[in-house]
Write a protein that binds this DNA or RNA. Structure first.
Lengths: 248, 248
DNA sequence: TCAAAAGTGTTCGATATACACCCATGC
DNA sequence: GCATGGGTGTATATCGAACACTTTTGA
């Protein structure tokens, strides 16, 4: 493709005033630590630092010949080493002001290239078992789980994206309840599941009713195994059986 | 902004292989003709033609300094003369192949400019009273309502977008039932509402149960007015009362 | 023996479903 | 008077919400 031609295209685009822009994906990755919902953030600096600031949502500009879903999968793979994490696109954020902060502009200059005057992003939700060992091969060497109540000020509109992701995760769980098992270890107790629901919906749930609800799910099967070394009656472990679930 | 600088930006973008692209919005506008759900399509040709083909979803590239929501509102305003139609973003379509068809490439060349080799679109749902007089000030002079069962082959991935919009409109009605009144005339009978539900969910609904359901909505108020000149018992008219609805 | 969490059933109200007949009107 | 669609009530099943006590275990 002739660059001179592209140059004309670009000038023409400016004349006509149509946007010609970069597009990124940003991922809100949820994890659950048995108490709070957490989100996986990265540090803006490429090299590890001791400073605990300047955190952002993991994301990337998308490549040529790359679909946005693929870009989100790539970001997650580079961040965690996991292929095919659960993924849900939830909104395109395209306010002309979202990348206008001076600090953000500086960072874009350094990180990508000068003069990105506008950046549109497509936001994704993802779910991850928080105790899973992550293999980070992304350019951001530091990543950290933070409870949603303790999130810092983040660049661009990342705080807004997280806020919307919270109502989105509820919609997701309502329309497809089994996604919650992606946030739990493969062996779990019913009270872990309940606490997860409580964290997602931010309200107390009745213990007995919840047991009934789980008992009505044939794909949640009891194991012959109980908690060890707990200073109270040991809870039984359960697992999610995908085979039974897929048979409906 | 110096164009030479932008030129460098562009070349650099190619080198790095990040996408630098145009972004569009496309709107799936639903209407209801008392029998079927319809969608408002435009003809690709800017001038009116007698040929009934080459229809597409109304849409537009977005401008600099324009948010995608604003672009969708603009498209709808130019198409209908109505400001602030109900609007719901539902997905970003970004497959690298979506604009690769030769005919679509030719059209982009002519319509916008040569060499748009990729185009990302953000899809919106909208609702419109089908008998409303539309004031079309867009560049597409022909627009037409077509029942969803009779849609032609459309350019790009517009058939796919429509397909997804059908499950999206159900989600919308479930999460916010009063949006259906945007598809009905301001005076309507209960059986009109029922037929609309039947069209959206594509299944028969029990008449008596449906009357009960409507009767449970205090914001649907009966008028002292009935159908005229119908060869059967005249049905009572109702209206949607926004004031009562807003008071909950 | 105490503290801490696990586990377990019943009742009630709200909501969704199923189902059949008479009414009003124009022709 | 007949064809057409309008309008109405009751019974049953399902689902979610409320609610308190006993059990197990480690310290």
């Amino acid at each position: 493709m002739c660059t001179q031609y592209l140059f004309c295209v670009l000038v023409d685009a400016m004349k006509r005033n149509y946007i010609h822009t970069f597009v990124s994906v940003d991922c809100v990755v949820f994890g659950f630590d048995n108490e709070n919902l957490n989100i996986l953030l990265v540090k803006r600096e490429k090299e590890p630092t001791t400073e605990f600031k300047n955190m952002k949502l993991p994301g990337s500009l998308i490549y040529n010949d790359e679909d946005v879903d693929d870009a989100a999968n790539r970001v997650l793979y580079e961040l965690t080493g996991i292929r095919r994490m659960s993924l849900r696109q939830f909104r395109c954020f395209a306010s002309p002001d979202r990348a206008r902060n001076v600090e953000d502009q500086k960072w874009l200059d350094k990180e990508y290239q000068p003069n990105i005057n506008r950046l549109i992003t497509v936001a994704y939700l993802s779910l991850c078992k928080i105790d899973r060992k992550l293999v980070n091969i992304s350019k951001y060497k530091d990543s950290v789980w933070l409870p949603i109540s303790e999130l810092p000020q983040m660049p661009f509109d990342h705080n807004l994206i997280v806020e919307e992701s919270l109502s989105e995760i509820r919609k997701w769980v309502e329309s497809e309840p089994v996604v919650i098992f992606e946030l739990l270890p493969s062996k779990f107790t019913i009270s872990q599941v309940r606490k997860l629901y409580e964290a997602i919906y931010n309200k107390k749930i009745d213990v007995r009713n919840f047991h009934k609800k789980i008992a009505a799910m044939p794909y949640v099967v009891a194991l012959n195994e109980k908690q060890q070394n707990v200073s109270h009656r040991a809870a039984r472990y359960y697992k999610f059986d995908k085979t039974i679930y897929n048979k409906r």
